[in-house]
């Protein structure tokens, strides 16, 4: 069978359509497999007591022995404390830098470096961030190299560029006319930036913070070198604390069946946390764009 030129072109077009469709399937299969595995295996251990009890002792089933499942309460506590502290360090710094970058870029050319810095910094491998915080503390505060404080500093370096970038973008979506209106009313420039521009862009700022927390929540590599591996809950800023990503890493790579079960449960809890934060950030972003459309 032979095709003429126009038939050949149409066949090519159909073929391309089919292949790109297959590509979508190829993208979704492994990704759905990952989530499916976590939902099925993690779902089988998830319960209220899983969220509120301590991790079990290592155990593999033998005849006459049933292994306890226990839970991940200290790791949930630790992750929440680490994320809270990391937000405390990175959010004010990031928002301040973003205000400078968006409100003063006309007067100070140097302000434009901030956006570029944030972009570049968000590409720094998270393990390198761990090495960095470790190195700084070895130099200046050797007694807290492995501590909650140290871990929170590492996570804050991960969060900083995301908070800065998203806030700057949000501030720039506020129309110039809003600033001019405020200034024309005789409101001081700094009050305009803080009480008018920042408040108008607030949903965008919240989006950035949520995205940054979502990203930091799943990071194990920087914690490995700063907070270290502990299974305890919070006992002090200068002491180590458990964290969900580290618990998954340690338990997943162990030969104990009950630890692997717990790791799946923790993976599911972590996925749900991150997805909830992502969905929430999308909702706040939509709120920002609705607000801007009215202007």
């Amino acid at each position: 069978m032979t095709f003429d030129r126009s038939q050949r072109r149409r066949v090519w077009s159909l073929l391309a359509k089919g292949l790109t469709g297959l590509a979508v399937v190829a993208v979704l299969i492994p990704l759905i497999a990952v989530i499916g595995e976590a939902v099925v295996l993690g779902g089988s251990v998830l319960s209220w007591s899983f969220l509120t009890s301590n991790p079990p002792l290592p155990c593999s089933p033998r005849p006459g022995v049933t292994c306890p499942t226990g839970g991940i309460a200290p790791a949930i506590e630790g992750t929440l404390i680490l994320l809270g502290l990391a937000s405390l360090w990175s959010v004010p710094l990031g928002i301040g830098a973003a205000i400078f970058a968006s409100e003063y870029s006309d007067r100070f050319r140097a302000a434009r470096i901030v956006g570029l810095t944030a972009d570049v910094m968000s590409g720094v491998p998270s393990i390198v961030v761990g090495v960095f915080v470790y190195s700084v503390l070895v130099l200046y505060a050797p007694s807290i190299v492995f501590s909650t404080l140290s871990g929170s500093l590492a996570l804050s370096v991960i969060m900083l560029p995301i908070v800065t970038r998203t806030t700057e973008t949000a501030l720039r979506t506020v129309p110039r006319s809003v600033r001019e209106a405020a200034l024309a009313l005789g409101i001081a420039r700094w009050k305009t930036s803080l009480r008018v521009v920042l408040v108008t862009a607030l949903p965008g700022v919240v989006t950035g913070i949520l995205l940054a927390i979502a990203r930091a929540a799943g990071e194990a590599a920087p914690l490995l070198l700063t907070d270290g591996g502990s299974f305890r809950g919070f006992v002090g800023l200068d002491q180590q604390v458990a964290a969900m990503p580290i618990l998954i890493f340690t338990f997943a790579d162990s030969p104990y069946q009950n630890w692997i079960r717990v790791a799946w449960g923790a993976a599911l809890v972590l996925i749900l946390l991150v997805l909830a934060l992502s969905v929430l950030s999308r909702l706040t972003l939509e709120r920002l764009s609705r607000r801007m459309r009215g202007m």
């Binding site: 976590a38 790579d253 993976a267 972590l270 991150v274 997805l275």
Partner: peptide, 17 residues
Amino acid sequence: LLAAIPSIVFGFWGLIV
């Protein structure tokens, strides 16, 4: 949304599955 899944979860899946 899948881009937001923590890398440790991908590693765990890789190891077990």
